[in-house]
């Protein structure tokens, strides 16, 4: 997973995405502007973060899960 380092920690770009979602639920497009990454990279990260259970998506808007909150507390 490109979002996760070999030691299990999140990559800087994945952390930036999670932190931005923690501020407020966001769309992929808004996140790309907020974190300064290309839209395709953000979409890829969002997919992996969702598969890892750290985010959920509803109507195109991404929200942090309790597991995502926990991960941010440990690594953020």
């Amino acid at each position: 997973m490109a979002c996760v380092n070999p030691d299990g920690t999140l990559t800087p770009s994945a952390l930036a995405v999670l932190k931005a979602v923690k501020q407020a639920p966001q769309t992929a497009e808004a996140l790309a502007a907020l974190v300064g990454l290309p839209l395709f990279r953000v979409r890829s990260s969002l997919r992996e973060l969702r598969e890892a259970g750290l985010l959920i998506e509803s109507g195109g808007v991404y929200h942090l899960t309790p597991q995502g909150e926990e991960t941010l507390k440990k690594q953020g």
Binding site: F40, R41, S44, E48
Partner: peptide, 13 residues
């Protein structure tokens, strides 16, 4: 080289 990407990740551009 930038992780796993789908063609649809590039949609809207």
């Amino acid at each position: 080289t930038h992780g796993v990407l789908r063609l649809s990740d590039f949609r809207d551009r």
